[in-house]
Design a protein around this nucleic acid. Structure first.
Lengths: 348, 348
DNA sequence: TAACCTTAGTAAAAGGTTTTACTAGTAGCT
DNA sequence: AGCTACTAGTAAAACCTTTTACTAAGGTTA
C-alpha cells in the first residue's frame, strides 16, 4: 500500500549537490557548459536513485501530450474487428518506434454529443488523432477542420473536406477484381458494396464498372447490394442478389468479411463455391486463407496504410508538412473461391 | 498553423473578477462558501471562453495519470487478434464509462529490456495495467509485484504469483467439452492445447481428463498436441494427432482459431467434419458461426472477463479492495462441427 | 588598470491546476 | 465595547520540469 514517494529531480539535485537546472541539463544532454566531473556526479546520482522524469510535468512544460489518439466507429466490440485491429497494430508499431504512445477512443453518439472528441485536443489528452471507419454521415469530423486539431483520416476520405488522409486504391481494386472475373469468363457479376456513405466503396464500384464497360459489359443497379461490411450483411446481400439475378456467376464483395458471409449463405442455399458461383473479396485478411474454399481477394495494404497514416500525422504535428494525401497500390491474391465459368462461351 | 493559445483558469479568473481559487472551487462544484452570484458569474465566464482544464496540470497536481494500460504479448499484429480485441473492447467500454482512458502497449522484448513496462508506472503514464496473453515465461511480470504498480492479469494466471486475475473456468470448459463428446459416443478424443506455459490450458486438459476418467476413459500423451493458439498451429496439430492416432473420432481445441485451422487441414486431408471426425473449439468467437461447418464450441465469457478485470483494477487503484481473484462460468454452444460417432457402440 | 571574455553554474519564471490556511467584514450576543 | 461565529473570498504552496537570463570567479588583452 505504502506508495513510497517517487523521487523527483529535486531529490537528485539535493543528493548530488547541484542545482535543479544543472541536473535537468545533464540528464537531457544539453549540458555543454557543465564540467565532466559534475556531469558524472549528477548522472551517477540519478542512476542510483532510479530517477524517472514525470511525463505529466514534462508535458505541462512542453505543452504537448505525447499521445496520439485512434478513433474508431461505434460498432459492437469495435476492437474485435480484424480490419480495424490490423490498422491499430500498424499505428502502434510505428508510433512506439518513434516514442509516441497511443490511446483508444470510440465515437459513441453520447461521446460525440458531449464533445469529447474535441476535448481530446483541448484538454491535452492527445496531440493528434487518427480516424478509422469514417463515413460521410460523421458530421463531427468537421470539428477537426480547426487548425489546432491535427487529424488524419485512415483508409477513407470525406467529400468536400480539407482533412488529410491515406487510402488504398479502391478504384484499381475494382478494376483488378473485374479483370480477374472477366478473364475467368464471367459476364454477369454482382457487387456487394459496403455502404453508400463510404467514399471508397464508390471508388470500388467505379473501378469495377470501368473494367466491365471496357469489355462491353455493365453493372445495373439490380446487381448491386449493400452488405454493411459485416458477415451477416454479406450473407443476406448474396442471397438477395441471386434472387434478383438468377444467372449471376460471380460476386465481388467490398471486404473479406462480407465475402465470407456470402460464401457461407450461398453454400447453405445449395450453391457450390466456386463451381456454381465465384466469390472474390477485398482486404486479404489472414483468416481468408482458412475458409472453405480459401478466399480469392484483392490485397489492400492496410497495415502500410496504418503506418503511413501515423507517419503523416506525426509530420503534421511537427510542422514538417502542411498537408498530405496518399494512395497506396493494391494487388490480386488468387486462392480457390473463384474459378472459370462452367458454361462459358469464352468467345471473341 | 497559428495554434491560438489555450485559455487557462487564469483567464477565467481575470475575466470574471474572481481569484484562481474561487474559479477552481466553482468549476469543481466544491464552492460551498461562495455566493450564488459569484458562482453564476464564474460559470458563465468559463462557458463563454470555452475553458477546458488541462489534464496535464490536473494530473500533475493529483499525482495520477488518469490512464489505464493494456499490455498485449508480442505476436504479429497483436491487435488484429479477435480474442485480444474482444477483451480490449470490454476494457475500453467499462473504462470509458467511468471516465478513464486507455493506452496500448506491446510487450516486445526490447520494450521489456528497456524497462518500459516499469516506466509506464514510474513516469506516470498510467495508474494501472491489464496484462493479456501472459505466460509462465514472462519473467518481467515479477516486476509488478511491487505494491506501487497495480496490475491485473486477464484470463490467465501465473504459478506462485501474488498478482490478481480474472479468468474463465477452463477446467469446467474441459469437462463440458468432454461430456458433450462422450454423450455423442466418442471415446477416443484428441486435445489440441495452446501451449504448456499457459496455466489455463492445463486447467482445460485437467477438466477433460477428469470427465474421461469418470467414464473409464483416459487421455494419453499421444493424444495431446500443442497448437500455439494459431490457425496454422491448429491445422498442423490436427494432422499430427491423426497420424499418431488413426482411430481418433473427435478433437477438442484449446481455442476457436486452432479449431478452425484444424477443420481446414482435416478437410484438406480428405476427412469429413463432423462425419468422420468431430471438432469442438473453445472461445465462441463471432466468426465461428460462419465456418463450414459452423463451429461447436465452449462459450467463454471473455467480454465479461475484460469488464470484470477492468472493474477490479479500478477498485485496486482506488484502494477499495486489497486483492481480487475471480473465475467466470462457461457454457456449451452446439453448432454443426460435432455429431454422433458413426460406428458408435453407444452401449454402456 | 580597465574592459572584455570564458567557464561553470544557478535563481527564477513559466506551464496550469488544486487545496490549505488565512483574512476582512459583518452579525449576533452579553 | 468586547467577544464569538459566520460568510465570502483569496494568497500562496505544492505538484515537477524545462529554459531563460543571470552571476561569480578567473583569465586575457589593449
Amino acid at each position: 500500500m505504502a506508495k513510497r514517494k517517487a523521487i523527483s529531480i529535486k531529490d537528485v539535485a539535493r543528493e548530488s549537490q547541484a542545482s535543479l537546472t544543472t541536473v535537468s541539463l545533464v540528464l537531457n544532454r544539453r549540458a555543454r557548459r557543465i564540467s565532466q566531473a559534475t556531469k558524472d556526479r549528477v548522472q551517477e546520482t540519478a542512476d542510483r536513485l532510479g530517477y524517472r522524469p514525470s511525463r505529466l510535468a514534462q508535458g505541462l512544460q512542453a505543452q504537448r501530450a505525447g499521445f496520439l489518439g485512434i478513433l474508431v466507429p461505434e460498432i459492437k466490440h469495435a476492437f474485435a474487428d480484424v480490419y480495424f485491429g490490423e490498422i491499430i497494430s500498424a499505428i502502434h508499431d510505428h508510433a512506439s518506434e518513434v516514442g509516441w504512445k497511443i490511446i483508444l477512443e470510440v465515437a459513441h453518439p453520447d461521446y460525440i454529443q458531449a464533445g469529447q472528441h474535441v476535448e481530446l485536443f483541448d484538454r491535452h489528452f492527445i496531440d493528434g488523432l487518427l480516424c478509422l471507419g469514417v463515413t460521410d454521415k460523421d458530421a463531427f469530423m468537421r470539428d477537426f477542420e480547426d487548425q489546432a486539431r491535427t487529424v488524419v483520416v485512415v483508409n477513407n476520405y470525406l467529400p468536400d473536406c480539407e482533412l488529410d488522409h491515406v487510402i488504398c486504391d479502391y478504384r484499381r481494386a475494382g478494376r483488378l477484381a473485374g479483370r480477374h472475373l472477366l478473364d475467368l469468363g464471367h459476364r454477369k457479376i454482382g457487387l456487394i458494396r459496403g455502404a453508400s456513405e463510404v467514399q471508397t466503396t464508390w471508388d470500388l464500384q467505379r473501378g469495377l464498372n470501368e473494367e466491365l464497360a471496357a469489355h462491353d459489359g455493365s453493372l445495373p443497379d439490380a446487381q448491386v447490394e449493400d452488405g454493411l461490411y459485416t458477415e451477416e450483411g454479406g450473407a443476406a446481400a448474396a442471397i438477395a442478389l441471386l434472387e434478383r439475378n438468377a444467372d449471376l456467376t460471380a460476386i465481388l464483395a467490398g471486404n473479406d468479411k462480407m465475402a465470407i458471409g456470402a460464401i457461407s449463405s450461398l453454400k447453405q442455399a445449395g450453391h457450390r463455391v466456386p463451381d456454381d458461383i465465384s466469390v472474390i473479396g477485398c482486404d486479404d485478411l489472414h483468416q481468408g486463407a482458412f475458409c472453405d474454399p480459401p478466399l480469392t481477394t484483392i490485397h489492400t495494404p492496410i497495415y502500410e496504410v496504418g503506418q503511413r497514416a501515423c507517419r503523416v500525422l506525426l509530420e503534421l504535428i511537427e510542422g514538417k508538412v502542411e498537408s498530405a494525401r496518399e494512395t497506396l497500390p493494391v494487388s490480386l491474391t488468387v486462392r480457390k473461391s473463384t474459378s472459370p465459368r462452367k458454361d462459358a462461351d469464352t468467345g471473341t
